[in-house]
């Protein structure tokens, strides 16, 4: 993938979040840049160990 990214920080309480899942999102637009091996875009799911807030971000394709 695009290498290690910085940990996400909880938007609610500022604690470092836990990266617990990755979802392969299949592109729907011409402008979407996909991972050439996986054929889609990886969306990372993160959860806050302090308050439970969930957040996500898309990983840059390699």
């Amino acid at each position: 993938m695009g290498g290690e990214m910085e940990p996400m920080v909880c938007p609610s309480c500022g604690v470092k979040m836990n990266h617990h899942a990755e979802k392969l999102v299949l592109p729907t637009g011409r402008a979407d840049v996909v991972d050439p091996v996986l054929g889609g875009i990886i969306e990372e799911m993160h959860a806050c160990p302090a308050c439970g807030t969930g957040a996500s971000r898309r990983r840059e394709p390699r």
């Binding site: 836990n18 617990h20 899942a21 990755e22 959860a47 806050c48 439970g52």
Partner: peptide, 10 residues
């Protein structure tokens, strides 16, 4: 699953 989401890293 809450424990896993919040405490166990992929």
């Amino acid at each position: 699953l809450r424990h896993g989401r919040e405490q166990i890293a992929l």
